[in-house]
Amino acid sequence: MTTGIERRHLLGGAAGLFAASLTGFRPALAEPGTGPLELAVAARAPTTPTGLTLAPDGRMFLFMPRFDESTVFTAGEVFPDGRVVPYPDEAVNRPDPARANERLFHVPNGVVDARGRLWLLDAGLMASSGEPVPGAAKLVGLDLASNAITRTIPLQDVVTKTSSLNDLRVDARPGREVAYITDQGQDGAGALIAVDLASGRALRRLAGHVSTQSVEGILKIVDGRVLLKRKADGTTSPIQGGANGLALSPDGARLYYTPLMSRRLYAVETAALLDPARDDASVAETVRDLGEKGLTGGLAADSRDRVYLSLQEFGAIGRRDPDGRIEIIARDPNLVWPDTFWITPDGWLYLSAAQANRRPEHNGGVDRQQSPYGIFRMRIDAGPA
Rank of each mutant, 00 (worst) to 15 (best):
T2V: 15
G4V: 13
L11V: 14
A15V: 04
L17Y: 05
L17T: 11
A40T: 01
P46F: 08
T47V: 03
D57H: 00
D57Q: 01
F61R: 05
F63M: 13
F67G: 00
D68H: 13
D68M: 07
D68W: 03
A75G: 05
G76N: 02
D81W: 03
G82C: 04
R83K: 08
P86C: 05
P86K: 04
P86S: 02
V92Y: 01
R94Q: 15
P97N: 14
N101G: 14
R103I: 04
F105S: 04
V107D: 05
G116N: 09
R117F: 08
L120S: 09
A123Y: 11
S128V: 10
K138M: 10
R151A: 07
P154C: 12
D157P: 03
D157L: 02
V159T: 15
S163E: 00
L165Y: 14
L165R: 14
N166G: 07
G175I: 09
A179H: 11
A179N: 05
T182F: 12
Q184L: 15
A191Y: 04
A191E: 05
A194P: 10
L197E: 07
R204C: 03
L206V: 00
S211T: 08
S211Y: 07
T212Y: 10
S214T: 12
E216P: 10
E216V: 07
G217I: 07
G217L: 07
L219W: 07
I221H: 14
I221A: 13
V222I: 15
D223P: 03
T236A: 12
A243N: 08
G245P: 06
A247H: 04
P250T: 08
L260Q: 14
S262N: 13
R263W: 08
L265S: 07
A271P: 05
L273V: 06
D279T: 12
A281S: 13
R288P: 00
T296N: 15
R304G: 14
R306E: 12
L311F: 00
I317M: 10
G318E: 11
G324D: 05
G324R: 03
W337I: 04
W348Y: 14
L349W: 12
L351G: 10
P360T: 01
Q369T: 15
Q370W: 03
Q370C: 05
P372V: 04
P372S: 01
I375E: 02
F376N: 04
I380R: 00
G383I: 06
